[in-house]
Design a protein around this nucleic acid. Sequence first.
DNA 1: ATCCTTATTGCAAAAAACTGCAATAAGGAT
DNA 2: ATCCTTATTGCAGTTTTTTGCAATAAGGAT
Lengths: 154, 154
Amino acid sequence: MSCEADLAKTLRERGYRITSQRRVILHILRQASDHLTPGEVFRQAQASLPGLTETTVYRTLEFLAQVGLAHAAFGSSGKRAYELSEHAHHHLTCRKCGHEIEIPHERFAALFAALEAENDFSLAHNHITLFGLCKNCQRENEFSSEEQGRRKAD
Amino acid sequence: MSCEADLAKTLRERGYRITSQRRVILHILRQASDHLTPGEVFRQAQASLPGLTETTVYRTLEFLAQVGLAHAAFGSSGKRAYELSEHAHHHLTCRKCGHEIEIPHERFAALFAALEAENDFSLAHNHITLFGLCKNCQRENEFSSEEQGRRKAD
DNA sequence: ATCCTTATTGCAAAAAACTGCAATAAGGAT
DNA sequence: ATCCTTATTGCAGTTTTTTGCAATAAGGAT
């Protein structure tokens, strides 16, 4: 697999090592169509690598993000979730029903470039999640008092 | 205090109640020059309201965000931090030294408006944090292997 | 001022994240 | 194939966030 070899090279060059744990976790992220929380990754990874620790998952995920292979996004619940960096995109997430609309990175590219230039800053590929209300949920009241205490029901 | 009365009205209209806890927490956020984590808010709040629980702080902060009075931002560490919604702005945060550059919301306004129109979406005021490297840190290597294991030292 | 409804809080216990340190194992060198 | 250095992992323990439920207290009505 070319991307495996590629990965090896990338990491090695920077002084990191390739381990079964990293391979498994990376593989899971590749399969995933969606963002995965550390817990989800852990559960899936357990299957192929029984001895794996939750701690390692957290550290590996964070590691992948640092190296740039993956990045963290914050879901509507505020829980951290990771996904591969490939095909940069962002999300509009409905705070009410959780519906997600994907926005290609290109839409942000110009603004990002401008900000980088103006501030002498080098932006990493961030996954941005913008919260709001989707078409349907806009009609109803955003957060009527009756919903108190049963937010997850939505 | 006008903003207090204003707050009262805002909440009451929506069916929420004003409690000493909410007042204290909101007051702390007003004083704060910076974002505060739930833990920080809790510690400060303890002073004026000894009986206060950490749980309540978490819930109140989340509540304020839902109601739109405050919003959560995710610091470089990924830790959640809250601040009042007034004077909308965003941040460019250096992943290495933690330096933060404030970006006025206006820079994002046009893009946000376009995204809202294109997707039939109503965006809430999100506080965006874009990570990257500041001017100074760009010179050095982003994440050389020697830094492994002592990231917080930077 | 007192009563009533029900939004909020506190408590206790669980789940999720994070840390320090000793043991393990990549992978370059011999 | 074996040795060596040190990046990574696992373990055990700590802190941070959440959640369910009963007790408390806002604030409108009487």
